[in-house]
Design a protein around this nucleic acid. Sequence first.
DNA 1: CTGGGTGCTGGAGCGCGCTCCAGGTCAAGC
DNA 2: GCTTGACCTGGAGCGCGCTCCAGCACCCAG
Lengths: 120, 120
Amino acid sequence: MPYKPGEAADRIGVSIDTIRYYEKIGLLHGIRRDSGGRRVFSDDDLGRLGLLRCLRDSGMPIARLRRFAELLQGGEDNADQRAALLEEHDREIDDKVAQLRLEQERVREKIKWYRSVHGQ
Amino acid sequence: MPYKPGEAADRIGVSIDTIRYYEKIGLLHGIRRDSGGRRVFSDDDLGRLGLLRCLRDSGMPIARLRRFAELLQGGEDNADQRAALLEEHDREIDDKVAQLRLEQERVREKIKWYRSVHGQ
DNA sequence: CTGGGTGCTGGAGCGCGCTCCAGGTCAAGC
DNA sequence: GCTTGACCTGGAGCGCGCTCCAGCACCCAG
């Protein structure tokens, strides 16, 4: 259950530098240390890191990630606010996908055009 | 049919600086100039700029955009290569959308979790 | 007991894609 | 004729999200 920094990084698929960076800028609170000052990650820590990474990968900017991290910190009674923030992000993913599909449509029309010209 | 820089920028939805930047790095060739050295855009120029912008917005990095721009420059007989490049981009859009949908699934499960806890 | 591997910190550096700026030119309207 | 405003150039600067580095500490294997 306790993971060393390298293990944690491997499991989540980020670099140790990224983990340190996330801790430094306040995305990842409460990581314990061993006697030598090294980070020790719990399953819960990995869960949080993985979620943050998922949000980041799906386009959430760091500033907003930070607000989410604060909610994670701030008591148990804000599940509502966490859910609300994630729901907004969910909508933003929908928007982004819709936008991508529009652009893809244009790309596909251009492909058709090039393919139709191709015979000549 | 001929557009001034400001008009061109407005129509495509980019800044004049972006247009100059694109020209400078070789994305936009053959923009004519008036007697005073100012850019004059044709409908064709706007079409190319719009397509480049669409590719950029859908995630194509500048380096690849440049290769596409070279194909646009290089004769009429490379419609095949243009189409191939765009088809690869089309697949990449599909991949990105698929990835986003996976991440969205995780986000939605977390929302459900928070909402289920919420009553307590 | 020593060498290598892993980790620590603070801070500098980087890659991308613009964006801004200084200093100048030109064209049109008053 | 003079002002205003859009545009020009080369080059510096920026915001984001890491990534790398120097210099040091610790721990375990041989």
